[in-house]
């Protein structure tokens, strides 16, 4: 203890300065580099998922296009806009902290939190939709629908490529809550126009009795399931980051409300801002990759 006290004599302590630093400039630089290194780490963390996406999408573009088309681009686009607005309010929070404007800081943080929560709300709506349509890739986690007559007459026996993808989504009997996907019309389309990839020719087809190739609904379903798996892991991990960000905002709200941040000291606001913008950037990529690519096949 004694050494600690004696050495303290040499250092002039500004408020908020930690003992290992000489001055605030050094502390701010350290924190800023640390945060950026953390973001680098985050980029590579998501990068693993993007690699998986890249590999599977290049192997099975039609399955991914089919999955993309089922996702609702309206909700996805809305969420993109919501996140961009929240990014704006976050940037303004930093701006007002730099201006030492406490009340505007608080307002902007509340707005950021509101838009962040809106984003999660929309995500919940989308996830519910997947639950209802049997699109959660894990068996047993989907809505369980009993086998009744009405459901049976929905053209379940039709070959999968004749299912009309424009028809309203029909619910098939799904007593165990399996992942289900019956529409492989895109494969037919791609086959007719002759732009199936080699791995797709292996991945979607089986040999029929005459030795010809026949689209196999089950094999195609497996590939679509991989799309939905990546969809859930990527958006789920992103949503998890949003939740962490909201927690960060809550803490920021409390400290900003108590007037901690002024033009002299606003590092925590700026760092939280970096995190928030990073989460936004991830979504900027997720939106086109998951919702939009392959949409032109149907337009």
């Amino acid at each position: 203890m004694s050494t600690h006290e004696t050495s303290d004599k040499f250092v002039y302590h500004e408020p908020g300065l930690q003992h290992q630093f000489e001055d605030m400039g050094q502390q701010e630089e350290s924190v800023s580099i640390g945060m950026w290194m953390f973001l680098v780490q985050e980029i590579l963390f998501f990068g693993g998922l993007f690699t998986a996406y890249l590999v599977f999408r290049s192997k099975y573009p039609m399955a991914f296009a089919a999955g993309s088309n089922h996702l609702d681009a309206f909700w996805g686009g809305l969420n993109t806009l919501v996140l961009i607005v929240s990014s704006l309010t976050m940037a303004l929070t930093v701006y007002y902290a730099q201006k030492s404007n406490r009340s505007m800081q608080v307002i902007m943080i509340v707005l950021t939190m509101f838009f962040g929560a809106t984003f999660l709300g929309v995500k919940a709506i989308e996830y519910t939709d997947k639950y209802n349509h049997g699109l959660i890739p894990v068996a047993g986690l989907n809505k369980k629908i009993k086998d009744d007559k009405a459901a049976h007459e929905t053209g379940h026996e039709k070959p999968c490529w004749e299912v009309d993808h424009n028809a309203p989504a029909v619910e098939h009997p799904n007593p165990r809550g399996d992942f289900q996907w019956t529409d492989c019309s895109l494969v037919k389309l791609a086959q007719d126009k002759n732009f199936l990839t080699e791995s797709e020719k292996i991945g979607y087809f089986v040999k029929d009795e005459n030795g010809g190739d026949r689209i196999d609904a089950n094999k195609f379903r497996d590939k679509v399931r991989i799309f939905f798996f990546l969809y859930f892991v990527m958006t789920g991990l992103h949503a998890l980051h949003m939740i962490v960000g909201l927690g960060l905002m809550l803490w920021l709200l409390w400290t900003a409300f108590r007037g901690h941040y002024t033009s002299e000291y606003y590092m925590p606001v700026e760092m939280s801002g970096l995190y928030w913008h990073f989460v936004d950037i991830v979504w900027i990529f997720l939106f086109p990759l998951l919702y939009l690519l392959g949409r032109h096949f149907l337009h």
Partner: peptide, 22 residues
């Protein structure tokens, strides 16, 4: 490097728990 193995092991764990097939 480390974040990539983290996400890989995470995918492995999900795959093992849910048999999604990735």
């Amino acid at each position: 490097g480390t974040p990539v193995v983290a996400i890989t092991v995470l995918l492995l764990a999900i795959e093992r728990a849910t048999h999604v097939g990735i």
